[in-house]
Design a binder for these strands. Structure first.
Lengths: 162, 162
DNA sequence: ATCAATGCAAATAATTTGCAAAAAG
DNA sequence: CTTTTTGCAAATTATTTGCATTGAT
């Protein structure tokens, strides 16, 4: 869904910058607007493309320097899907406790939430002497196509320049 | 616990090599023996050290070439803890469905299992059209020391050459 | 013998960084 | 004006790879 509105998250991030006495440059705006116009997971490279389509002057270095700010402000989460580059998930601002299930073959990703799981996590953590700050649950499995056909038509996302 | 016995896992791995017509070299033995004598998570670099203390001739390249075999055979799992190098967990052969809880500050890691979580994961995955192949749950939280003192004495593991 | 496995050193590729110039407040 | 931010290009660093040689079967 292109153009998904996350005005709230955007504002929170700008406030975060203000709090830390960081400046709202045109490049940061292009980057942030790109991030908050998608629900897709993205890579640094992909974000660079999106941001450049809004503002030609955005450099790779600025993307790499802005990403940690987005992560620190909790507006975006860093994800590892076993590739040699990182993915970023912009949906944690709307759904702070969501989980992922990924098809082994086509790498289709579905997000879901579960209060039951949240509850058990809290209970167990408490027993072990911890309080929960955040969590990541990633299930790897077989999607319907893979189960039925033995393989998926759409193999690894060829949508980033990797 | 140094010297923890995982003879079963070791044998399974050697069988795995045989099945694929791969050879049991002295270097692979040193590497594999190192892996199955620990319950600690380790890095490639750390494994190189351990293996070299058994067999001087082990090279970094061989460690990096053996690790994927250990992962493919499911004797070891690749883990991402947000660092720029990977960790490997040798405990999946004994506890195939265990989870991790990590202290935000000192990075102490505790492993745990939960049938309840396993069950919910299966139910939800099924509803979403998936079957479960494997899962990774990582909770980040505050350990008792961090909660009580506001900081932990033992900061990031300085035990690997990073 | 045959073919897989090794060490070495060079290559790869994502991410980081130093620096002088440009822009924000 | 002062301080942060930028783009660029060079540096960094974990991991991978080509190749000639060695070792397992």
């Amino acid at each position: 869904m292109v153009g998904h509105d996350k005005t709230g998250a955007r504002d929170k991030f700008l406030k975060f910058l203000a709090t830390k006495n960081l400046r709202i440059t045109s490049q940061r705006q292009a980057i942030v607007d790109s991030v908050f116009s998608t629900e897709e997971h993205f890579t640094a490279e992909q974000l660079l493309e999106w941001a450049r389509s809004r503002d030609k002057s955005v450099s790779r270095a600025t993307v790499y320097r802005t990403l940690p700010l987005l992560v620190e402000s909790k507006m975006v989460h860093e994800m590892d899907f076993g590739k040699d580059y990182k993915f970023y998930d912009p949906n944690y601002s709307d759904h702070p406790n969501h989980h992922h299930i990924i098809c082994q073959d086509c790498e289709k990703i579905v997000e879901f939430e579960s209060e039951k799981i949240d509850k058990i996590e809290n209970e167990i953590s408490h027993k072990l002497g911890f309080s929960v700050a955040s969590q990541k649950l990633q299930i790897t499995g077989n999607c319907e196509e893979l189960k039925k056909m033995g393989a998926c038509k759409n193999h690894p996302c060829s949508t980033h320049g990797h």
